[in-house]
Design a protein around this nucleic acid. Structure first.
Length: 511
RNA sequence: GGCGGCGUAGCUCAGCGGUAGAGCAGGGGAAUCAUAAUCCCUUGGUCGGCGGUUCAAAUCCGUCCGCCGCUACCA
């Protein structure tokens, strides 16, 4: 029976334009989704936008638009970015859609049924700009007597009625979850932080607001709208058709993997499982958080004006090199830097030199010396085996790595094989065999073609467009590109298209 | 302050009890099928400091120094 796999990106908050950080998380999720599809799973891949909250309401007012019109245009921009990045989502949910609003309200009611929602008052120092409450001890007093948040945002004392979620009740069950399901939170460092946070003790969570209107109305009390995280987190369920348990998509629940930025790890590893526990809904399998990008060594910020729109890079270099760089440059999970120099260096050494050139030299030798058709396989020498044996294990090795979200390690695994292929071709020297032993030459080229087929197959999730081109040049049909298809060797004699370079080299023109 | 992580070759990092590793960068050589790409060899580290446990420590323990993260409602 086909395994179902459900992976999500965060729903992105529409208070600004999409940047490289959003693209990063989405590309990572996309790689997992594509990888699981190649492995034969029935994948559901969700992305979308988080569109409620006071900040959005105000930004819309400032822009002189209705909140709906405002979010429509930014949501469209996020969707366009996802499309540019070749994100293969199955659905794009917006929290302003009726299906989501109804689902979020149903989840609220379900949690309320368990007795874990009660009404009270919330009061504290509130920073409008940050949409956040702060503790007295976090504030600093300015010379003029006004208090400001650590972020520098001015705060005011507010008191408003609020519904609360009994988060405190779930402390032990959460700790037990982290204990019994050690892979629930990744990477490791993030897990430690969450565990120690929960150990400190959990306070009940204010989950509604009366101070603004742009949100999901609380069922049965229209004076309140839901706190944005109750609303937002429920998207992972509402997109599947929740609360309609007979909806076909509900078969994908519980989610296998939520990929998130490290800033929102806590919402996904503490609040979300607690909400689900309260509602009696099974928990997701894993929440993995990724780090931040800096640009040329500096923090990305609007004031520095160094915010990178991934689409600008795609325009210049193509989508696959950007996807590749984002995942390759640093172990997935940590922070990383994007500099033009390191970017171009990566593309030149690993894509153009190592991989692109390997394909090009192999394919042009075949084109020129084998009549442009895929040679038959010959008897394997020990050297051939030494190359092909580990190559055939690649998909299963990478499967383990992808399951751990070790997306960079998985790439490194492929590059070991690519380097081995370059060494192999030099040692076998098919260009010399051409005169001394043409049969062996053909067999060597076939070994390389087989290795390249594996390489291109497993790299499809990272670089779908380029690897499709490479697989076409290697003579594979559309239906021969899954992991399962690798078990069947391609028939010799198939004619191959004329080889064409896939990854160009870049030279920075001197300025 | 509390909790946690990190500090290993010029750079990015892996190793986590048994004679220091990879990639890139640097140096030398080979080859010429290929996007002047590739291959081979090679320089380079008292594994942050000090102390301890052990036959044996980057690897375990203690301590010190230096970075970084978390410490509640903020993509």
């Amino acid at each position: 029976m086909t395994r179902r796999f459900y992976v999500t990106t965060p729903i992105y908050y529409v208070n600004g334009a999409p940047h490289i950080g959003h693209a990063y998380t989405s590309v990572a999720a996309d790689i997992v989704a594509r990888f699981r599809r190649l492995a034969g799973d029935d994948v559901f891949f969700l992305t979308g936008t988080d569109e409620h909250g006071q900040k959005v309401e105000q930004a819309a007012a400032t822009a002189g638009e209705t909140p709906q019109a405002f979010t429509d245009s930014i949501a469209a921009d996020f969707r366009a970015m996802a499309d540019t990045m070749q994100i293969s989502y199955n659905d794009f949910i917006r929290t302003t859609e009726p299906r989501h609003i109804a689902g979020a309200q149903a989840l609220w009611e379900k949690v309320a049924e368990s007795g874990d929602i009660y009404s009270g008052h919330y009061e504290g120092w509130y920073a409008l700009r940050d949409e956040a409450f702060y503790g007295e001890d976090e504030l600093t007093t300015r010379p003029d007597g006004t208090k400001v948040a650590p972020t520098g945002a001015p705060v005011e004392w507010v008191r408003e009625p609020s519904y609360f979620f009994r988060l405190s009740k779930y402390q032990d069950r959460l700790l037990e979850l982290y204990e019994t399901q050690p892979d629930f939170i990744g990477p490791h460092g993030s897990r430690n932080e969450i565990v120690s946070f929960v150990r400190q003790g959990l306070r009940d969570l204010s989950i509604s607001r009366t101070s603004f209107r742009w949100g999901v109305p609380v069922p049965g009390d229209e004076a309140h709208v839901m706190y944005v995280w109750f609303d937002a987190l429920s998207n992972y369920l509402t997109a599947l058709g929740y609360p309609d348990t007979s909806a076909p998509r509900m078969a994908w629940w519980p989610a296998d993997l939520h990929l998130v930025g490290k800033d929102i790890a806590r919402f996904h590893t503490v609040y979300w499982p607690a909400f689900l526990m309260a509602a009696g809904i099974p928990l997701p399998g894993k929440v993995f958080s990724n780090g931040w990008w800096t640009v040329e060594g500096e923090k990305m910020s609007k004031s520095l004006g160094n915010v990178i729109d991934p689409r600008d890079l795609v325009k210049e270099f193509g989508v696959d090199p950007v996807r590749f760089f984002l995942i390759r440059e640093v172990p997935f999970g940590g922070d990383s830097d994007l500099s033009r120099r390191s970017f171009i260096h990566r593309l030149n050494t690993e894509l153009a030199n190592d991989l692109g050139n390997l394909a090009q030299r192999t394919l042009s030798l075949i084109a020129r010396n084998c009549g442009g058709v895929l040679p038959d396989a010959g008897p394997h020498t020990p050297e051939d085996e030494q190359l092909l044996a580990p190559a055939s294990l690649l998909p299963s090795v990478m499967e383990g790595q992808v399951a751990r979200c070790a997306l960079t390690d998985a790439l490194e695994e492929v590059w070991k094989l690519i380097r081995a292929c370059n060494a192999y071709i030099d040692h076998q020297a098919p260009w010399a065999l051409k005169k001394t032993d043409p049969d062996r030459m053909a067999h060597v080229l076939r070994v390389l073609a087989d290795a390249l087929r594996i390489i291109a197959t497993v790299l499809q999730p990272w670089m779908p467009e380029s690897m499709a081109k490479m697989l076409t040049q290697l003579g594979t049909e559309e239906q021969e590109r899954s992991f399962a298809a690798l078990a069947t060797p391609l028939p010799g004699g198939r004619s191959l298209p004329a080889p064409q370079g896939i990854f160009p080299r870049y030279t920075e023109e001197a300025k």
